[in-house]
Structures are given as C-alpha cells and as structure tokens.
Amino acid sequence: MTLPEILTPGRLLAGAVTAAAISLWLLLPRGRESGVARWLGILLGIAALAGLACAGRRLGGLGEEAVFLTVSLVAVVSGAATVLTRSPVYSAIWFAMCLLGVAGVLLVLGAQFLGVATIVVYAGAILVMFLFVLMLAQPAGLAPYDRVSNEPFLSAVTAAVLLGLLTLSIGRLSAEPAAPLAAEPAVTVAADPLAENHVARLGAELFGRHLVSVEAAGVLLLVALIGSIAVVSRSESAGLEDAR
C-alpha cells in the first residue's frame, strides 16, 4: 500500500483538521506550563498547516508561489501566536506582525490600496491604541486570567471543524466558473498587483457608485467618536465615585 493510497484527499483533510484541533488545545493557556505539550503542539501545528496547504493551488510561477507562501505563512503563524501567547502585550505585537502578513496577501491578491491601508489604519492607529490601553490597564502581564482559557478543548474542536468545512466548501465552489455579479461590471480588477492606475480607479468606484455608503461611513465614524467620548466621561465619573 503506497502513500498516495493511504493519503486520500479526504483522509488528509481529516487528519489536518484533527492535528489543528489538538495543536490548538495543547498550545492554549491551560494553567500549567509544560515544555513537552508545547513542542508537541508546535509540531502538530506545522503538520496541520502542511496538510491544509495541500488544499491550495499551484500558482503560475515559482517566484509568485514563494512570495505568496511567505506572506501567508507570516499572516497565519503570527495570527496563531496572537491567539496563543499568554501576555497580551506580546499578543498585540504578534497581531501587528499578522497585519503585515495580511497586507502582503492583499497586495499579492491585487489590492494594493487595501494592503497599504490595512497597515496604516491598523498598525498605525488601532494597534497603537491597543498597546496604549494595554499599558494603562495591565502592567503586570501575568494575571491568572491570562494563564487559563475558557473551554479550550471544545473551542479548538469547533474552530477546527469550521476550518475543515470552509476548506471543503472552498473546494466545491472553485469548481464552478466565476460569474460576473453585476450585469455590467463597472471596472475589472487587474490581476496584476502593479496594475496601472489602480488607486485612481478604486477611488472613482468608491466615490461614484458607493458615495452614499462613504457618507454613511463618515457619519458612523463621527457617531463612534462622540459615543466613545460620552462613554468615557461617564465611566470616569463613575470610577471617581467608586474611588470615593
């Protein structure tokens, strides 16, 4: 019995999902630290990634493949580290790393503007805010609630099964030819990451067809701004009362 006969695609997927579940369970904080569990988890995680990578496609060229593999590995591994690290400060830094990976993926996928915007908005603004809050709130970094998880096993199984289902359905969907959504697509996205005038065309689309949505988003931002200020002032006064 040869390897391909044993490793049918279905079994491969099932194995990868199981490995992912066990790996997540082992790596999640569960109160007591154990070096064996950690290394076993890391190994299983690599196996799971490898298994799931088999569900991917070969791309046009080797260089392209290398670029995509790099950025996506950065994104996924640092995303896993964000979830699994005990210290929230490290979590936030891993998240920043993940964002870089995601930006790379977006760039490869042909969304130049979004790739840059993700870095600017998240890494530049949101993440800094996170860290700021984190420093304010939790200087110790090793609180008991950072060392335990809520229902790690069930959650890991749920997420792994979800991942399996998504992989399966992505496979199903890709068999169908892509159908244009609109009867007459306004602008076709260039497959080339460095397509000419990408941002200009995106801007035209955003401020043409989606102008009302942009206005609504602007109003939403304003409301969120005012709302957060209102909540802050109230909770601070409440905190003052508590202090008294």
Binding site: N150, L154, T158, L162, L165
Partner: peptide
Amino acid sequence: GLVQRYALAGASGVLLIVLALF
C-alpha cells in the same frame, strides 16, 4: 452568565446546523 460560553454555544450551534446541511 459567562459571555464566552454563550459565544461558544452559538458558534458550535451554527456549526452543527452547517454540518447537518453538508
């Protein structure tokens, strides 16, 4: 009263339904 247990129940419930559909 733990919000994460509720979230887990919701997520796994949806998953079960999707599984059944599959």
